[in-house]
């Protein structure tokens, strides 16, 4: 495959993104980013027995934004809420084999999306 600016892992997730879509009656929805900035991510999570049982996303953005979204959904599935909250942008970027410096914000967007979705979950399901 052609090289391009991205790692093979980024291109693999960009070409075959996991978990694209939406979850009907999601337990939490997080939306971050801004189309004016070039990217925007909406993350849907399903929570069962304190764990993220399903995650889906829709993202407008560049290759790094779509790959970060895809990788994030893979990483949070099966994690407890606390574990999912603890995921950092560096972990997302590392899992993708690294991102160009100018694209680090795409992994930050993924980290913020999971926090926003879980905040939404906590609001809807007060302990």
């Amino acid at each position: 495959m052609a090289g391009g600016p991205y790692s093979e892992k980024v291109m693999e997730h960009f070409m075959n993104p996991r978990n694209v879509g939406e979850i009907e009656n999601a337990d939490g929805v997080g939306e971050v980013g801004n189309p004016a900035c070039g990217d925007m991510m909406r993350l849907y999570v399903k929570v069962e027995a304190g764990k993220v049982s399903d995650a889906k996303f829709r993202t407008f953005g560049c290759g790094a934004a779509i790959a970060s979204s895809s990788m994030l959904t893979e990483m949070i599935k099966g994690k407890t809420i606390d574990e999912a909250r603890a995921i950092t942008n560096t972990q997302v970027s590392d899992a993708l084999g690294g991102l160009p410096e100018v694209k680090i914000h795409c992994s930050v967007m993924a980290e913020e999306a999971v926090k926003a979705a879980l905040d939404d979950y906590s609001k809807k399901h007060p302990a």
């Binding site: 600016p5 900035c37 070039g38 990217d39 953005g61 560049c62 934004a65 160009p100 410096e101 100018v102 694209k103 680090i104 914000h105």
Partner: peptide
């Protein structure tokens, strides 16, 4: 488009 403008840059 902005996102493709300067992939070798240092930050956003």
């Amino acid at each position: 488009s902005a996102c493709s403008s300067n992939l070798r840059g240092h930050d956003e």
